[in-house]
Amino acid sequence: MNQTTTAVRATGLTRIYGSEDAKVTALSDVSVEFERGQFTAIMGPSGSGKSTLMHCIAGLDQVTSGKVWIGGTELTVLNDDQLTALRREKVGFIFQAFNLLPTLTALENITLPLDLAGRRPDRSVVDRVVDTLLLRDRLDHRPSQLSGGQQQRVACARALVTEPEVVFADEPTGALDSQTSAELLGFLRQSVDDFGQTVVMVTHDPTAAAYADRVLFLADGRLVGDLTAPTADTVLDWMKSMERAAH
């Protein structure tokens, strides 16, 4: 396994919720790798475990068994402070509900992770991210003064500004219309192509998944498909065949 080409790796991931009498197996023995500089989409019906998979590999959720590495670091042995530091240094998040701090300006929201780490922002990185996302003239605005698409771009910039090992996006276009969705996905694509960023995105939208280099399909907590160079049509076909298989 080549450390230099793998950004995130998980082996034998199992996540069981609830106690003895009410067990729910959200993930069952999933092993997966995400290449550095690749844009991967995770798809699957509701309850397939796609969000749980993302939470586990992002270090947000505890795993029941299995191991996860981000870069060369094994997550499952870290304590909360170490996990926090890892999230700060190596992981960026984009959420469905933009999740900006309402009292901070766009720029302050973007640099928040650096602020938390006590690091001075690298001007050139900030400039590059801000310019890529076309936020230059919005930096002094509060979230309430921005449109949904602009807010999500700010969230996107916040995820990219630490130059993380991997950016996790959880249904990032879920609250956007098709026009702004396309813009945002374009920016994510651009960050992968131009800066070699690794992006892992959970989505249920075939059009969004088509922006990715690779699509993973989950069903009932198991990895059931792996599609490279997807198009909206091939993704849709996959989904249909999964539905048929389920019936």
């Binding site: 947000l60 909360d80 402070d81 926090t84 530091a85 999230r87 700060r88 240094e89 998040f93 959420f95 999740n99 701090l101 928040l112 992770p113 938390l116 780490a117 916040r158």
Partner: peptide
Amino acid sequence: IRQFALLRAVGASRRQ
């Protein structure tokens, strides 16, 4: 809560 959770997600430690 959501704000605190967000801060935690983007890298704020419990202490912070």
